[in-house]
Amino acid sequence: TLFEALYDYEARTEDDLSFHKGEKFQILNSSEGDWWEVRSLTTGETGYIPSPYLAPV
């Protein structure tokens, strides 16, 4: 399942991933609570992002 960003987000740590509203992601790991490890389909980068900022496509 692909997810889309509902809002912009600016990374706060080196493990976070900055992204823009509308960017699409592949979920790599969603078992860590509200922070999911994802791969951006736009940039190819991986990192953690807050799951409340995402919605299924």
Rank of each mutant, 00 (worst) to 15 (best):
L2R: 04
L2F: 10
L2K: 04
L2A: 05
L2V: 13
L2Q: 06
L2C: 08
F3E: 01
F3V: 07
F3C: 06
E4Q: 10
E4H: 08
E4P: 00
E4L: 09
E4F: 14
A5H: 00
A5D: 00
A5Y: 01
A5M: 03
A5P: 00
A5Q: 01
A5F: 01
A5S: 06
L6H: 04
L6N: 04
L6C: 07
L6E: 03
L6W: 05
Y7F: 13
Y7N: 07
Y7M: 12
Y7H: 09
Y7G: 07
Y7I: 11
Y7W: 13
D8M: 03
D8Y: 04
D8W: 05
D8N: 09
D8P: 06
D8K: 04
Y9G: 03
Y9N: 02
Y9L: 04
Y9I: 03
Y9E: 01
Y9V: 04
E10T: 14
E10D: 10
A11R: 09
A11G: 12
A11W: 03
A11F: 03
R12Y: 09
R12K: 13
R12S: 12
R12L: 12
R12F: 09
R12W: 08
T13F: 15
T13K: 13
T13C: 14
T13R: 14
E14V: 11
E14T: 12
E14C: 13
E14G: 13
E14F: 10
E14L: 11
D15A: 13
D15Q: 14
D15R: 15
D16C: 14
D16V: 15
D16Y: 13
D16K: 14
D16I: 12
D16F: 14
D16E: 15
L17W: 07
L17C: 04
L17Q: 03
L17F: 14
L17G: 01
S18K: 05
S18Y: 04
S18L: 02
S18F: 04
S18N: 06
S18H: 06
S18Q: 05
F19H: 01
F19D: 00
F19C: 08
F19A: 10
F19R: 00
H20V: 14
H20A: 11
H20I: 11
H20S: 13
K21E: 05
K21V: 08
K21W: 04
K21L: 05
K21G: 02
K21T: 07
G22L: 02
G22C: 04
G22F: 05
G22R: 02
E23M: 07
E23G: 02
E23S: 05
E23Q: 08
E23Y: 05
K24T: 09
K24H: 09
K24E: 04
K24F: 11
F25I: 01
F25K: 00
F25S: 00
F25T: 00
F25L: 04
F25C: 02
Q26M: 14
Q26T: 10
Q26F: 13
Q26L: 14
I27G: 01
I27E: 00
I27F: 10
I27V: 14
L28I: 12
L28A: 01
L28W: 02
L28N: 01
L28F: 03
N29A: 08
N29Q: 07
N29K: 08
N29G: 10
N29L: 05
N29T: 08
N29F: 07
N29S: 11
N29V: 07
S30C: 13
S30T: 11
S31Q: 11
S31N: 11
S31C: 12
S31E: 11
S31I: 10
E32R: 15
E32T: 12
E32I: 12
E32W: 12
E32S: 13
E32M: 14
G33E: 12
D34E: 12
D34A: 11
D34S: 11
D34N: 09
D34Q: 11
W35V: 11
W35M: 13
W35A: 06
W35D: 04
W35L: 11
W35F: 10
W36P: 00
W36H: 01
W36Y: 07
W36A: 01
E37V: 12
E37C: 14
E37N: 08
V38S: 01
V38M: 05
V38A: 10
V38D: 00
V38L: 01
V38C: 09
V38F: 01
V38E: 01
R39E: 05
R39T: 06
R39N: 02
S40Q: 07
S40W: 02
S40C: 06
S40R: 14
S40F: 04
S40H: 07
L41P: 02
L41S: 03
T42M: 10
T42N: 10
T42W: 13
T42Y: 09
T43Y: 02
T43P: 00
T43C: 03
T43V: 01
T43I: 01
G44K: 05
G44H: 06
G44I: 01
G44D: 05
E45T: 09
E45A: 14
E45N: 12
E45Y: 10
T46H: 09
T46N: 05
T46R: 11
T46E: 09
T46Q: 09
T46V: 14
G47M: 07
G47P: 00
Y48L: 11
Y48V: 08
Y48R: 14
I49C: 06
I49Q: 00
I49F: 01
I49Y: 00
I49P: 00
I49E: 00
I49N: 00
P50F: 15
P50M: 12
P50W: 15
P50R: 13
S51M: 09
S51C: 10
S51E: 04
S51K: 11
S51D: 02
S51T: 07
S51R: 12
S51L: 05
P52I: 15
P52Y: 15
P52A: 15
P52R: 15
P52F: 15
Y53I: 06
Y53M: 11
Y53G: 05
Y53D: 02
Y53L: 11
L54Y: 03
L54A: 05
A55R: 12
A55Y: 10
A55D: 05
A55S: 11
A55M: 10
A55V: 13
P56Q: 09
P56I: 08
P56V: 08
P56H: 06
V57P: 05
V57H: 07
V57F: 08
